[in-house]
Design a protein around this nucleic acid. Structure first.
Lengths: 204, 204
DNA sequence: GTCTATATCGGGATAGAC
DNA sequence: GTCTATCCCGATATAGAC
């Protein structure tokens, strides 16, 4: 039945995401992925062709969702500042809905984007372009200073990704004074404030 | 001779840093590290005990340097805002002097700090505490609003680390419009502006 | 589509000579 | 301190039955 096959595929994907996040592409083993998915190892090769194919499926899904979310932000319009705040929130939501993705992405960056193919690159490029439009509107309105979209993107994705990916690490050090007991909402608000402050035209 | 042994150790460390950054702990192979270091594989085990021991030596060195740098920032004093800007610059410099470290650290975070031992944790904790003191001075002076040190730290380390670690990735997409052709100095300035904007007491 | 069994190989680690 | 040769396990991938 196609039903069972779909469920099987979905379980494998979820299991793989956890494993790739925790151990990285090289550290992950197909045996463990199969075990956690309550599937057979041979099924993974049947459905996804290879370990790399499985990994790519996850990247594709997430970047498509990210491009969709940012496009929606642009389409609902509003003041550039509001759009930028919504942009931050959209990126955060895509990450929060895929708890394993931030760690996967950190590793992917560290690897020089070894597994980033044209599809993923296209989505990433679209996101950067849309962000560029938001910033350009702000400059045109006289409320923002010119800033490189990629720079702003670092300011958004850097803190959000690092925070979300560091959940296991934070859990280990939660007992410390000044321990990292912060909520995701607090992080999003802080990033919004930072990012807006980073592009605002100085009034002093 | 101890001289040769020291040189050998140093070459192994440098080679390992490159390899760990590019491939991760699991992806790195001791054979390749030895090859690039023009050393013998058995030497690595002789000097560093194990692959993990070699990796830890790199973490220790970098975090000790980071704690030193931040302590120096505190000792030179000045207004809280100036100290915070210097803090950003200090973190950036420690990273820039060890080009492979940012990628290593991104991976380490993604792994839940699997290799973070008490020594590294102690340095990290000291850095957070010192940052907390800077922020507290700002609050006392009435120019900063209370902010969680860990949150601020994410705002600093997130963009800086992601930017520095993404050098290989950026090189691959440098040809795109809005391509990521940004200098490290521009990034540091942008992060300083963002971070200060994130903790400044609102004057409106 | 799902399983078991297995081919095959790469890589961490060490023994032991010099 | 430095080298060669090797043990040995674990991991990707596939063959082939059902």
């Amino acid at each position: 039945m196609a039903r069972n096959a779909d469920a099987s595929r979905a379980r494998i994907r979820a299991s793989a995401a956890t494993e790739f996040a925790a151990r990285g592409f090289d550290g992950a083993t197909v045996d463990r992925i199969a075990l956690k998915a309550r599937a057979n190892k041979a099924m993974i090769y049947y459905h996804f062709k290879s370990k790399a194919g499985l990994y790519n499926a996850i990247l594709h899904d997430t970047f498509a969702a990210m491009a969709d979310a940012v496009r929606a932000v642009r389409e609902s319009g509003g003041a550039p500042e509001a759009q930028l705040a919504a942009y931050v929130e959209a990126i955060a939501r895509v990450g929060a809905e895929r708890p394993h993705f931030p760690a996967i992405w950190l590793r992917e960056v560290a690897e020089g984007g070894r597994h980033v193919d044209v599809t993923v690159a296209g989505h990433f490029r679209e996101v950067l372009t849309l962000l560029g439009h938001i910033l350009a509107e702000g400059v045109a309105a006289g409320t923002m200073r010119p800033a490189h979209p990629f720079l702003v993107q670092m300011g958004v994705v850097g803190p959000l990704t690092l925070f979300m990916a560091s959940r296991p690490l934070r859990a280990r050090f939660a007992h410390l004074p000044h321990g990292p007991d912060v909520s995701i909402d607090a992080v999003v608000r802080h990033v919004q404030t930072m990012v807006l402050g980073g592009v605002a035209r100085q009034t002093t």
